[in-house]
Write a protein that binds this DNA or RNA. Sequence first.
RNA 1: GCGCCUGUGGCGAAAUUGGUAGACGCGCCAGACUUAGGAUCUGGUGUUGAGAGACGUGUAGGUUCGAGUCCUAUCAGGCGCACCA
Length: 943
Amino acid sequence: MGYNFNEIEQKWQQRWRDNKTYRVVENSEKEKFYVLNMFPYPSGAGLHVGHPLGYIASDIFARFKRLQGYNVLNPMGYDAYGLPAEQYAIQTGQHPAITTEQNINRYREQLDKIGFCFDWDREIRTCDPEYYHWTQWAFIKMFNHYYDNTTKSSRPISELVEKLSKEGSANIDAACTKEVNISAAEWNAMNEKEQQELLMNWRIAFLNETMVNWCPQLGTVLANDEVVDGVSERGGFPVVQKKMKQWCLRVSAYAQRLLDGLDKIDWTDSLKETQRNWIGRSEGTEMQFRIKDSDIEFTIFTTRADTVFGVTFMVLAPESELVAQLTTAEQKEAVEAYLDRTKKRTERERMIDRNVTGVFTGSYAINPLTGENIPVWVSDYVLAGYGTGAIMAVPAHDSRDYAFAKHFGIEIRPLIEGCDVSEESFDAKEGIMTNSPTAAFAACKLHLNGLTVKEAIAATKKYVTDNNLGRVKVNYRLRDAIFSRQRYWGEPFPIYYKNGIPTPIPEECLPLELPEVEKFLPTESGEPPLGHAKMWAWDCVNNCVTNKENINNETIFPLELNTMPGFAGSSAYYLRYMDPRNNKALVSKEADNYWQNVDLYVGGTEHATGHLIYSRFWNMFLFDLGVSVKEEPFQKLVNQGMIQGRSNFVYRIKDTNTFVSLNLAKDYDVTPLHVDVNIVSNDVLDIDAFRAWRPEYADAEFILENDKYICGWAVEKMSKSMFNVVNPDTIVEKYGADTLRLYEMFLGPVEQSKPWDTNGIDGCHRFLRKLWGMFFDKNDNYIVTDEAATKEELKSLHKLIKKTTEDIPAFSYNTTVSAFMICVNELSSLKCNKKEILEKIVILLAPFAPHISEELWEITGHTTSVCDAEWPAFNEEFLKEDTIKYTISFNGKARFTLEFAADATNADIEATVLADENSQRYIDGKPIKKVIIVPKKIVNVVI
RNA sequence: GCGCCUGUGGCGAAAUUGGUAGACGCGCCAGACUUAGGAUCUGGUGUUGAGAGACGUGUAGGUUCGAGUCCUAUCAGGCGCACCA
């Protein structure tokens, strides 16, 4: 019978379920280890062979840590709310709750077959009210907090209110939407609605009328990370800029902490770099410019304060409020025409079209240093959302300003010695400054001539600060996250509108459950589907949801109609896994103190600027509140590579039903066609299967080479349309889950993207059969003995122990699998069937191939699970050689070989080499001067 | 444009971190056992050469007794950010 993997795997999967082998409880006696995968959004397509890669990798790690004696948390759940789940439901014409449930069941079935050690008792789903209770709770907390820049943490909004009522805004240094100057008297004179509206300026979760990414086809607004190249990440639909009132999260308040935190965590440099780019810290200067013949003053931001003498025009973003104020009567028509034109363009059109456009406002600004008059223009190359939405333009040293100046014939004034600006601007931040105005500008005492750019920037900053012309400022590219979606399938906001004032429902009334609606489809006009919900008003007396027909203006108010975006539920889920059934708190203090944060997080890079920013932000906020004990949620992060598809092609001769084999195809006029990879083996087509595959190929003819039809191949995305999707279920059925697990790891480094190629899988399968063959002979007789192991056998074993113990923590799984194969090859050629050796190998293999390991563990006479075994320690003694061969080489070429005792010292070796008759102290007739000894390998000589 | 990463046989990839390439697996070749085999087992397999040997880690230099590994330049591919002032 041999190795019957199907039977073995089903048996053990059942036992693990029945015995709850992988259930984990807090245990202060044991050290914890928290392994986490990015939980999946359960798509309708089910798993393909690429999806489990990260799960297998982390499962191996989790099992390894458990064998080493750690208390390992390795949970799994589903990111079930959000756009993808809802889009799928819409496409299939079903309710998202139904499709989500179906998809989850399908996922679970597929996952179970692969033999993961997840503690399913801790499963969470983001669309489960018990779960989103705490998403809503966190939102209320954010609503009730502001970010204090002095303590660098979130504080209760009540503290801010108290300050405002006593001191006004004078002593407030807090993250805000707009700088506000208000006295205590003014604050106290405001009515409640006015006060509440002003407080939005500081809340971490706040309502704001702002330019947003509006996607008409999806019928919702999107966050910046959900828009790629001007189209929606999901679906690829056009996105336009639109001013809308939306809930936002003040992520920008945490920009600096998000940046600093990167130094404390163990992530790849490239991912940290991506986040640094996204946060986009830029240090510069803000300067005030006055408008000639007016009291209007405005602020610009620049990183090149040193170029202030080269400013020949100013530019405002079209959306800037200053445009209207600065436009003169003569320019009014031209400016309005320009604004009209820019407004109509989508984000994408603006990105593609880089032609220089702009219009003069008619106003002049005064250079605060020189007193010069500078024309103020409007152009869409200046962005409203960054800096102050206004710039000083220095065409000599900024390529965009240069293009603009050339186009409109504005002066270009170089400031750096020897730079040539006749053809292009000199953007580099290097060189020696020149052309500083001297006698002509008596007002200005700043002279930069002779300084380097760096010195000049510093000098100008100092001058500007000292003379009250501006201030040093740090800007971030990171924007606040737009948090509302005009969609159905998401967490409802726990907010009602009491006379227009957004008010959180009491925390003890959470969760606020998603209501049933008749029509959940999104609309192009942006009317949220929750508008159709009948039971969608808040009764402040009975503290419950009620029919919206009951709305009155005293006790029953309308509830918020928007829902939260996909990232809301995925931002703090790792905390919930610690204590998933707690209905008193997101996570209990005890559980949080025990599990702390995620030690190893495994997932794809595609979340670099979305989920991985949001959850760091969310966790930092909870950290400020004292809810989370660690400021960074994910200590170590490993990005598994994407598994691509490996497509196969057949070549049909044009206008025929004849197919020609790959290497003969060049002689014909052929059309390459994708063919299902499941009917191709080692690029050889199964002709009968091909004829049966599709009716039109039933009578296909073939031109063969060596009696075979060879297919072409290419690496492409794994997708149904390319017929290159490989389903893990098929592999499990044919080879078993253990083989699948081994092979996925053997394919190459986990972090690397690589194509899936089922061809190599036999090697891994053979290895398991070989291992099985060490326990049973051909007639299924148990052949393991209690004899003592030989030195050679022990050496082979300990080599493997050392390799696995060192390579698993380094995530070097492909070489570990190789090491298993080498070891088993060695032992089987030694005809080793000693229990002492074999049962150790079974433990070592358990993380990779848990089913066969359990089976063999039981067969060798153990009654407990192999999961509870102890990871073997290696003994260096067994690894030592008696003698070591050294190659004596000169100039990199081997001359002769000498053998030394393993414990020979360098001095011994050197003495022997110098005295050896082969060398006779001479090489090529010259005496040896020096001997360089490389441990265990080579002796290099110098003559 | 700025930043990050990667280039090794027919293929996936190793290389004790500067130690004398290509481990392991696939594929291919030969042999054994088989009525048969897309099964199993054994051996071979970087290129070139009859041969000892010579040449080989994208390309060109450099450092070193010694370079896939370090330095400089360059080419190719991938990723991130991008009218961010």
